[in-house]
């Protein structure tokens, strides 16, 4: 049970070395976790929902990003060989500090008591050896500050750009699952599309409430995504995109899905019924949507409320598509009005 060292680089700014390594959870629990709390200027463990999800994921076999362990030492010569530095690390590990990854190690510690925890899984480590405490502080500040954590919404926005091609004008472009960029459904504005993606991931139509300040809304979206079943679900957003592309074969459905509130409701509801919808003919789906619209037209909501209610009802309709698509206009109205 030991460290596997891979690379050694000289950091001339902090006059030290950076070493990439990996080891097992067991080693980390025995040698890294006890180091926590040594560097007084760092904060102790926080107890939040985010880390409880990480705890689950550790047991399920996720691989965490590398943690950073720091040491203070001035080597006599400028250029050291890997084995000299390695030996130093191995022999002096108990006087090291956890520079980045305290929360992760605490979570690992909690996870180690759970059923199914595998202590032999790998954890990756960056070792930083600086020649003075001040230089280490400097590295810590440049590591942790100046990088504002991105909101979940922002992260999704960026990835959406990577996954989907919004600028493509070549109409013959065919979507290939898993291969590079995919053509977004015709004439969808990126902002609307991303909203749908966020709604899909968080399982909620309520993603842009005006009276909740943006920072809190972002927190809630992240929380909902963490709570969701994305790792275990059989449905992917690509399936929704495929369905939307299928809709363009019907002019009614093509226009219908392009209404933002319908699209958002659909992204949430179709998560549940994607499998069935794939098998149905476009005519059947068109019929059911026409029926839905008839039922919905009877709802007496003020203009100011209409968008929100439409999103919710569309989501409800598609979530329970199997049952609701069988009902006639009035039976459907009964079920919808019950939800209002």
């Amino acid at each position: 049970m030991s460290l596997n060292f891979y690379t050694l680089d000289t950091d001339t700014v902090i006059e030290g070395y950076v070493v990439m390594a990996s080891t097992t959870y067991e080693f980390a629990l025995n040698h890294f976790v006890p180091l926590i709390g040594r560097l007084d200027i760092q904060r102790d463990a926080l107890n939040t929902k985010f880390y409880s999800r990480l705890e689950d994921d550790i047991v399920r076999g996720c691989v965490m990003p590398p943690i950073t362990i720091a040491m203070i030492h001035s080597f006599p010569d400028r250029q050291q060989a890997l084995d000299v530095v390695q030996d130093y690390i191995s022999e002096n590990i108990e006087s090291a500090f956890v520079l980045d990854g305290i929360q992760r190690l605490n979570t690992l510690h909690r996870a180690s008591f759970r059923d199914g925890f595998d202590a032999n899984r790998a954890i990756h480590v960056n070792f930083i050896i600086a020649s003075s405490r001040d230089r280490l502080l400097y590295r810590m500040i440049t590591l942790n500050n100046g990088q504002k954590p991105m909101s979940a919404r922002h992260q999704i926005d960026i990835l959406a750009d990577a996954f989907f091609d919004f600028d493509a004008i070549d109409l013959k472009l065919v979507a290939e699952k898993g291969k590079g960029r995919v053509r977004a459904p015709e004439s969808f504005k990126k902002a609307d599309f991303v909203k749908g993606y966020i709604a899909y991931l968080s399982g909620s139509v309520n993603i842009d409430n005006q009276k909740i300040i943006e920072e809190k809304m972002d927190e809630l979206i992240a929380l909902k995504i963490i709570d969701s079943d994305i790792p275990t679900s059989n449905v992917e957003f690509m399936d929704i995109v495929d369905l939307v592309n299928k809709f363009s074969k019907s002019s009614l459905l093509r226009d219908w899905i392009r209404v933002q509130n319908n699209f958002i409701g659909f992204c949430v509801g179709a998560k549940t019924s994607a499998v069935e919808l794939k098998l149905l003919s476009i005519e059947k789906i068109e019929e059911s949507v026409k029926n839905f619209e008839k039922a919905f037209s009877s709802i007496n909501v003020s203009k100011v409320n209409l968008g929100k209610v439409r999103r919710e009802m569309v989501a409800f309709f598609f979530q329970n598509y199997l049952n609701l698509s069988k009902l006639d206009e009035f039976e459907l109205l009964d079920r919808i009005s019950y939800r209002l």
């Binding site: 309520n206 409430n209 909740i212 809190k216 927190e219 809630l220 929380l223």
Partner: peptide
Amino acid sequence: IESIKLCVA
């Protein structure tokens, strides 16, 4: 009050 507001911390 909608559920989403109830969850704001």
